[in-house]
Design a protein around this nucleic acid. Structure first.
Lengths: 225, 225, 225, 225
DNA sequence: TATGAATGAGCTTTCATTCAT
DNA sequence: AATGAATGAAAGCTCATTCAT
């Protein structure tokens, strides 16, 4: 009935993508619109009618491809994560010393978040839902985490070189970087209301980007306890 | 018609609250339940019926006291922020040197968040709504931010003492601490799904609490650029 | 329980009204406000809460004095009719010839309606309700109709004098005058929307007042069929 | 979402309506029932549930086609006016002399009203609402008024012929005729309660119909002031 | 594949009315 | 006589979902 409900991979049927089948176009288009809607309003706040209206198809198609609202949301979530992972795989810090490599990773993570506001909001929404969809997603299980893995490799290298403290956990550092980058965007509305500072203002952005690098490096290069 | 729609203050008419008027009990009870519901499901996901049912009153009373769903949500949000502020005011780090004071602040902030999971979730919800309620709340405008102000004072002291770098902004540090503490809780579901680590596990919690202190101190005590 | 639910007479406890009892003031005030509300919104559209709020008393009093919404509406309707009757009784056309007397009656009726827009609207509302309250009102039964009775006397006089046609019914003439005066006000909104003419504009008002007199006289003085 | 919210035209796709699309049937049916309900109870008194129940559809469809209660009411009002206009267009008094033509118009207007009690009541309701819907209706703006226009032509003819007084305004005459015909029906309940006369009784009806013609003619043929 | 029409369950909100004091 | 709080029933409206073609 439903064509391929869980397969969210883009249809690249060869080294060169010749022609998308019409169904893929439709599917793709729906996902695009749904991503914006769910990111904008959250799961409960998003409206199937609204999504359908902004699509070049009809509501029936949403159900044809994605079964129900939940299926559509899950597909959106999965695609968003897969895309981000894709980008992370492009990060290349070979040739940099540990310190500069870490700084580069922090910087790139900072920018990646800035460039994907919808993703940030989807993640917030999914956490409001207590991760019920991401935790059951097969598409997202064991796909690894390039960013964290890269970070781990650099840390090990830096520790071997004797420049980084040895009592650090890579995942903790990753969490720290993520928290800084995510919070700045996800919580910017309440932050601005309380402190009158727009964290996305270019002036603040640049300062915060350096600060993140400085802080991570300061921490990593400080002596172990 | 509506009794006092914007007043969210608790009715403590003296050192010992002798007898709440019944209306305050009702109001209070509604707010309590609504806080849980909105924290649990978000704004759009929360159900007025559900809230009413768990209250010792009827649905009608929610509207009597809070006008509509939005009014109730706003009251919940305001009360939650006011309570947090209250707690922050209790933080006392007088008598500690700058370094230990900062570490104490980070530690207490860490714990305060841990103890208020509903608050964390409400803030996420409000940010999904782009802060539309907090930014228009009179109750929350210009009530200051004890935590940030305290931090500012300690930083200045440390800088005067020559132990802290001079190119730091107190609000940036506050944001860093907040992001760490908030993210660990607000994003723990997706984090666990992706990395298989429960950030609220006591073992991780303790390590992360120290790490936060170490990192902030490492940063503050590193030389200015 | 209810003090005197159907008695709408003003409390004149002697030749000179010395002091209204407080309860009468309250009652009076409620009726005043309710008249405006029912005239403004109709029976179903009027809101008990709204009326209570604009009153110097509480909602409970409305029920105390008037039992329920319907009772209040009925009291409003009765008082309005009684007041109008009162005014009609003041019309004095003795000393005028039949033609001038009729013209005076038409003119005064025209003005009376103009001066009582609330009354006009209440009558519309009561007719939407198919007269269910006026037809069961004891206060309004057999109270006669001064205007129609006066008209009848003048007509008879004019017919005796040979100036008026003899095949006219006084009630028909009364209806004609009323319809003209009522319609001009009650239907002015749809009339203006359709024809772009505001029938209450002074310029139109003066012309229409004369026209009514002319027309009635032209009819009455034209030969019988 | 909503199919064609403002189009109230009947779907006559040729000289013989072969087959209505089902949606038109539904729409049509809803409008029919809603007309009766709004005419019966007024705007605020009408119940969406009641209308839906008497329809062959569900409540949801009312909203699907007409957005909300107000939209449905407006559609009812517009359709009612358009139908009346349609009927007025059929009036043909060519070939009659001015006097007989005017008498015919008065007579037909009288009968048209008698045949459309729902319309009369809807107009009352709309005037209680101060014409807020008719005044903003695009469907009813500049659709002209056949009855008034015809009247105007006849008057001009009669004036040219020297049989009608020259100081009359066609719209005034139209208003006079309308007021007589409308009042007799719209205010019949209060009239009967006050005077014990049922204005719709056939005996009164016939007499009043002639009286209206006599009066208008008497006025028009009387000398100018 | 595609589409307008339809649906039922449930949502937020309102209203006249009454209770406790 | 007066009042704030409370209530149940029902009102208007919305939503995800499915049917018929």
């Amino acid at each position: 009935m439903s064509p391929r409900a869980t397969d969210t991979s883009d249809d690249t049927s060869g080294p060169t993508v010749k022609r998308r089948r019409n169904s893929d176009l439709t599917r793709h288009n729906i996902l695009e619109v749904a991503t914006e809607e769910f990111a904008d309003k959250g799961f409960a706040g998003a409206r199937i009618d609204e999504i359908a209206q902004r699509t070049h198809t009809t509501k029936r198609m949403l159900y044809y491809y994605f079964t129900d609202k939940e299926g559509l949301y899950k597909a959106v979530l999965e695609q968003s994560y897969l895309r981000i992972r894709e980008r992370e795989r492009d990060v290349d810090v070979e040739g940099l010393g540990p310190i500069e490599a870490i700084r580069a990773i922090a910087s790139l993570t900072f920018d990646h978040h800035e460039e994907n506001p919808d993703f940030i909001r989807l993640v917030s929404t999914e956490n409001i839902l207590r991760g019920e969809h991401i935790s059951t997603s097969e598409a997202l299980s064991n796909l690894g985490n390039p960013a964290a893995e890269l970070l781990s490799r650099i840390l090990t290298r830096g520790q071997a070189d004797g420049v980084f403290r040895t009592d650090v956990d890579a995942l903790d550092v990753h969490m720290t970087i993520s928290s800084f980058c995510v919070f700045r965007l996800s919580n910017r509305y309440t932050f601005e209301a309380l402190f009158g500072r727009d964290l996305t203002d270019p002036q603040h952005r640049e300062r915060l980007r350096s600060m993140l690098g400085d802080m991570i490096i300061a921490y990593l290069t400080s002596p172990s306890r």
